[in-house]
Design a protein around this nucleic acid. Structure first.
Length: 483
DNA sequence: ATGTTC
């Protein structure tokens, strides 16, 4: 599938699909892209999906898409859409199946020379301590009342039960707990899938990575985030496992029924939605919050095992190694937020699907320790080329409801990658560049081959060039554990 | 992403 419609150049980084492109569009769609990514942009149907999103009732501002846009369920992955808090809709397809898929970054006081000689042992220890892979199960047995506590309290539950430090919550989006969560809106099927999987990494593009800080671009922000050149950091990328997936599946069914009942005309049935103030809409938002809380508890537990693994390997306390969390941010979520729109202050439900919140300095919802510089934004690249730390800007707040990209974005399907690459080829290539790789499965490596992804540099150049966020640091892997 | 087509 490819996109044949209009893509009007606004400037080097902004491309518009005007609202007269097709009937039913309420606003323009604006895609942030540029350079060699423009070719790939037209090669799948994602721009059409960005146009479709503008047909949803109550959309505020433009339908937006980040440079790592690619085809997704209903909404494009890389999409951002704000819906009016009184007259808008909420749509599970605008959040994604993996509710609160996100990234957590931990810093250390260790240097490359401390870790490089032990990287195989360290990755193997992480592998032993953090369950991973398709259908992977955690190391604890929750009761039904405990899973409800997890859904209600998120990261707070994990810290209260000994997984991590109180300070971790202060540097987690929403402090690790969405307050509107209501476990009674989550199905038993979702609980059943969630119970055994809490505290596991999962599969696909989820990973755990030991990196070093290769470069610093913004000294002030890096200093506030506790980052400096040559330092070892750890990144974890995962989400809400089968629990969030089931919540999305359950409510897509509910909302498809709703769309049919009220006779809402949509260009794609995968845009199934319900008014934010309807019972269905409210129930989904409460259940989505539970899925988000599950993911924060999950990443919190994994952080605990990361600290334990370092302690095991280096025979020092995590505190002594300075293993403080820098931040944890979601990139598949909807949030009720206040934004300035055409000079007016408005409450909107911001859908971010494969898009990362990026609030600027002095925003009341970011941790006070980062208030003078802005919110840390964590962008994983492919497993061979590392990740970026960015910081939110006023421009992003004004143009994209405080949002930016979420990663490199695939350019090759999983099946094509499995056909095209070999495990030995990928491993040899990565080891040649000093990166040790360990995975639960052979296909896990093949599907995530670095060359199956767009260049993270190109994606970052667009969001930085457009001013949606600012580069702070580049992290390069020494060791990768694939789910 | 996902008990990878309940």
């Amino acid at each position: 599938m490819s996109y044949e419609g209009p893509l009007e150049k606004i400037d080097d980084f902004r491309w518009k699909i005007p609202r007269d492109y097709k009937s039913g569009m309420n606003t323009d769609a604006v895609i942030y892209s540029g350079g060699e990514m423009l070719q790939a942009l037209r090669e799948d149907d994602a721009p059409e999906q960005a146009a479709n999103v503008s047909c949803l009732p109550g959309i505020v501002g433009n339908s937006l898409a980040m440079p790592d846009i690619h085809w997704g369920y209903g909404f494009p992955i890389g999409g951002v859409a704000a819906m009016d808090a009184d007259e808008g809709v909420i749509s599970p397809g605008g959040i994604g199946f993996d509710i609160n898929c996100g990234v957590r970054l931990v810093r250390t006081d260790l240097e490359i020379a401390d870790v490089q000689p032990h990287i195989k042992e360290l990755i193997s220890t992480l592998f032993k301590n953090v369950p991973s892979g398709v259908g992977s199960e955690g190391l604890i047995n929750l009761t039904k009342s405990q899973i409800d506590e997890v859904l209600l309290e998120g990261g707070e539950w994990a810290v209260r039960n000994g997984y991590g430090w109180d300070e971790d919550l202060l540097v987690t989006e929403e402090e690790g707990r969405m307050k509107n969560a209501d476990p009674s809106k989550v199905s038993d099927k979702s609980r059943k899938r969630g119970i055994p999987q809490l505290g596991s990494l999962g599969s696909g593009n989820h990973f755990l990575e030991v990196d070093y800080v290769e470069d610093i671009f913004d000294e002030d922000a890096a200093k506030a985030f506790g980052l400096r050149k040559g330092q070892i950091t750890v990144t974890v990328h995962c989400g809400s496992r089968g629990c969030g997936h089931q919540i999305a599946t359950d409510y897509l069914q509910v909302m498809e029924r709703n769309v049919k009942q009220v006779g809402l005309q949509l260009p794609d049935r995968q845009l199934a939605c319900a008014p934010v103030n309807s019972k269905d809409g409210e129930n989904y938002f409460k259940a989505m919050a539970c899925g988000a809380n599950y993911a924060w508890a999950n990443r919190q537990m994994i952080l605990h095992w990361i600290r334990e693994s370092f302690e095991e390997c280096f025979k020092r306390d995590a505190e002594n190694m300075g293993m403080h969390q820098v931040y944890d941010v979601a990139h598949n979520i909807a949030k009720l937020e206040e934004h300035n729109v055409d000079g007016q202050r408005r409450k909107v439900y911001v859908h971010r699907k494969g898009a990362t919140r990026a609030f600027p300095k002095e925003h009341p919802e970011i941790p006070s320790c980062y208030s003078s510089v802005g919110q840390p934004v964590l962008i994983p690249g492919d497993m061979g080329h590392g990740s970026y730390v960015l910081v939110g800007t006023e421009c992003g707040m004004a143009e994209t409801f405080g949002s930016t990209c979420h990663g490199a974005g695939r350019i090759m399907s999983r099946s094509e990658a499995i056909r095209k690459f070999t495990v030995q080829g990928i491993k040899t290539n990565m080891e040649g560049r000093g990166i040790f790789l360990k995975s639960a499965t052979k296909d896990g490596i093949l599907e995530e081959a670095p060359d199956a992804y767009k260049s993270i540099e190109n994606v970052i150049d667009v969001v930085a060039g457009a001013g949606l966020s600012k580069k702070v640091a580049k992290l390069v892997p020494l060791g990768v554990m694939k789910g």
